[in-house]
Amino acid sequence: MADIRSFDDMKEAGFGDFVQLLKPRVMSLVVFTALVGLLVAPVHLHPVVGFAAILFIALGAGASGALNMWWDADIDAIMRRTKSRPVPAGKVEAGEALGIGLALSGISVVMLALATNILAGALLAFTIFFYAVVYSMWLKRSTPQNIVIGGAAGAFPPMIGWVAATGYISVEACLMFMLIFMWTPPHFWALALFMNEDYSQAGVPMLTVTHGKKSTRKHIILYTIALVPFAIATAFTSIGGPIYLAVAVVLNAEFLRGAYRIWRRDEDQAAADKYKVEKSVFRFSLLYLFLHFGALLAEAALRPYGFGGW
């Protein structure tokens, strides 16, 4: 009987469990990159509008996270890294995650379009669609290139931030997009090298599962080489400057060195020191992205005092 007593045995979901559905850690990266995209733009938004823009971009990212948790509940339950998420843990029903994901998608897109402009709202809608449908439903389980193309979803926030402020897409917005887009594969493949067991058990065709770790190591170095021109080129646009260039040169040299070390190692060496190099490159990759966007922010912050920019 579907009355209130039948729910007594269920684990009760608290407010925090619904917040967990929105992937707050991913959201924090989205907030940071979108904020940088918005602040480095040549048009200054009213602080209330800027705050609303960032909030609704983050909410849109959260909505796509909830949709992802609804769709991927079966594989999340298998992987150690994800099995404590609210849906596989039995705290939130899959249908609730779907409902929250759809409702927040609609609210965030409409509110961003109303607060800033239609193009920003449309880009956010496309990002949610890309992450939930193209990545989660289609690519993730069908091709080892899943994270390469799926990385685009994570690359859109700074572009949306820029468009929210200016109303148009520019070369600067595209380069910020490319920076995250090209950074995603080496970042996730470094993770996959030492989390391989998880993905193979869940049947997710990560590159490490389908092509082996040797091939993954080669892919990491190739994608890192391809990333460098985009990271450096950003320095010579209107949002770049000497501070960014100096930071980018150092970070890219270090990232290349890390990718090279991963490429030169084999599985025996990696197993012997418990993937020490792979883990350190993975951690460094987080710092790499944070400092690139931090440098862009520094350029914008120093510009009024005559320091930032060329």
Binding site: E12, G14, F15
Partner: peptide, 15 residues
């Protein structure tokens, strides 16, 4: 007050 009101207090407060 039904027990559910106590149990769901944090959720209701959050919403």
């Amino acid at each position: 007050e039904h027990e559910i009101h106590k149990r769901r207090f944090s959720r209701n407060l959050g919403v």
